[in-house]
């Protein structure tokens, strides 16, 4: 029972990070019909920017309590500029090209960013300074520490904030209008290029937060960390129904749980033949299963003709 509870906690924490990243995939897909495979690298750059600025700030003698939020803000800002630039430079010129062209470009951007990060930060693992006391709390035999609590609560807060923006504001209405019908949105006076840029920037800011969360949770950052994370968050978006914001959040949390419970029990179920190091396999089983059984995802609409 303790294992079960522990894996639920781990799954929800990891899942909330997947959800934040999945939102970035799904928002861009909803508006452009493009799978932005470079999104995982934005997560990595966010982590790296936070790490570098944190190290510098601490070196200048800034107190950790101030340095942490400051470096997170810098990482978000940096990633917003990065997200804006990616769209402006790599995707906008291909807006009317056949769909394969931007997809391949996205993979290209991903490779460029990975190599750029490798040149700047090197190939080695960087340890993320531990600024928050771990203080493990015991809940019915399972352990949850302060960082995990902060990650989960912060992730939920950002998701709630995004939902408010999308559902209740003028900008959110414009985003949904552009997602549904770009010509009609233009007729209403919406500058679609501006809305698309803002969408990339919001997604990238969420990615930066997620990057900081992952590296704070594991205490590590690495130029390659965005690749697998990005693929898993993409899986989460597909699981929930790509293009659907609630789906991305649900898919993220579910994928976190599936992975964590799978890793927790696979050893027992296979008599020790597979270990928890097979954790990554679950995400891709889920991806294949969804694509075969329900390609529209859990909350996705079937692609019906318009009324």
């Amino acid at each position: 029972m303790e294992i079960f509870l522990q894996q639920i906690i781990n799954g929800l924490v990891q899942g909330s990070v997947y959800a934040l990243v999945a939102l970035g995939y799904t928002m861009v897909y909803g508006i452009l019909g493009l799978i932005n495979f470079a999104h995982g690298e934005v997560v990595m750059i966010g982590a790296m920017l936070a790490l570098s600025s944190l190290t510098a700030l601490l070196g200048w003698g800034v107190t950790p309590l101030l340095a942490l939020p400051l470096s997170i803000s810098l990482a978000m800002l940096g990633c917003m500029v990065l997200g804006y630039s990616i769209e402006r430079i790599a995707y906008r010129p291909l807006r009317h090209a056949p769909r394969l062209a931007p997809l391949i470009t996205a993979i290209g951007v991903s490779i460029v960013l990975q190599n750029l990060a490798m040149m700047i930060w090197g190939r080695s693992y960087h340890s993320f300074p531990q600024l928050i006391a771990n203080n493990p709390h015991n809940i019915g035999g399972a352990i949850i520490n302060n960082i995990q609590i902060i990650i989960f609560v912060l992730a939920l807060a950002f998701m709630a904030g995004l939902m408010v923006v999308v559902n209740r504001t003028r900008l959110g209405r414009a985003m949904r209008a552009v997602a549904e019908n770009q010509h009609a949105a233009q007729l209403m006076g919406v500058d679609i290029n501006r809305v698309i840029s803002i969408t990339f920037m919001i997604g990238s800011a969420l990615a930066a937060i997620a990057g900081v969360m992952v590296s704070a949770n594991y205490g590590l950052a690495h130029y390659y960390m965005g690749f697998i994370l990005g693929l898993k968050a993409f899986t989460a978006a597909v699981l929930g129904g790509i293009g659907n914001l609630r789906g991305a959040m649900l898919g993220g949390l579910l994928l976190g749980l599936i992975e964590s419970l799978g890793a927790g029990y696979i050893g027992d179920l296979t008599g020790g033949f597979f270990g928890s190091n097979y954790q990554d396999v679950f995400a891709f089983f889920v991806l294949i299963a969804v694509l075969v059984l329900r390609p529209s995802g859990l909350l996705g609409e079937r692609l019906a003709e318009r009324a």
Partner: peptide, 15 residues
């Protein structure tokens, strides 16, 4: 905008 309410459609008109 089929996935928006009538009122949201009208508010888009006043964008």
């Amino acid at each position: 905008f089929a996935r928006m309410t009538i009122e949201e459609n009208l508010l888009m008109g006043a964008y």
